[in-house]
Design a protein around this nucleic acid. Sequence first.
DNA 1: GCGATTTATGGGGTTACGTCA
DNA 2: GATGACGTAACCCCATAAATC
Length: 238
Amino acid sequence: MLNHMEYTYSAEAAAEAETYSSTTPQASAMRKKKSKNTKRFSDEQIKSLESMFETESRLEPRKKLQLARELGLQPRQIAIWFQNKRARWKSKQLERDYNILRSNYNNLASKFEALKKEKQALLSQLQKLNDIIEKPQEQAQSSTSTQVKAANMDSESENGDTIKYEAEVKPSLLGVPSDDDTSIKVEYFGMEDEPCLLNFVEQHAEGSLTSPEEWSTFESHDLLAQSTSDLQWWDFWS
DNA sequence: GCGATTTATGGGGTTACGTCA
DNA sequence: GATGACGTAACCCCATAAATC
């Protein structure tokens, strides 16, 4: 609620100045006269103002008058000091917020890079495992095909028709987990307790986080909040 | 002399209140 | 008496000037 407090500091000077046109030498002299009155507040005054600002950044009119009396300043000076103080505080607060955001971003970016490397390592391991699994399979296939060829020779009908044998072996039948088999993944990685993380990883496993559009939808603060309070999932990855 | 900081001013906007038709 | 328009005062934020460190 605003009160109708009167300005008592500059009212007289302003009224005096307004009696002249703003372009006249008198007005110019007036401004000089006013500006020459600017004095630094004493340490004691600053101390009191600072301590008051800590309790409330906006002064009630009554407190402003009281403070003005106590410090021997005009209420207008108190008001202006608080106004400037708020501006300084806001500027510093912006700086602090910027530093926090930058730090959070760097933190998140480094974690993302680590996750990317981890993913690459896992994919590489998977590829190696696939190679190991497929080699005996190929050997088996080649031996089978020679047998089939032999059999074909045998099974060629009397009228010249050839019977074709197709040996299609699915990887899943050989014990290799397919990408969409969640139960196998859970079993492999022991992540029954982390369904959310599993979903997260699956959703972003294809490098979709590399696009800025995806970053905007990626709610990093949830992950960060979790990471700061409970590092278990991160320990798993690192 | 120069840059950073502090004090103060002025403009433009908002809100609360009083007055008047 | 209720109401809307208008004026005024006090406050705010913001940009900036001027003095000081």
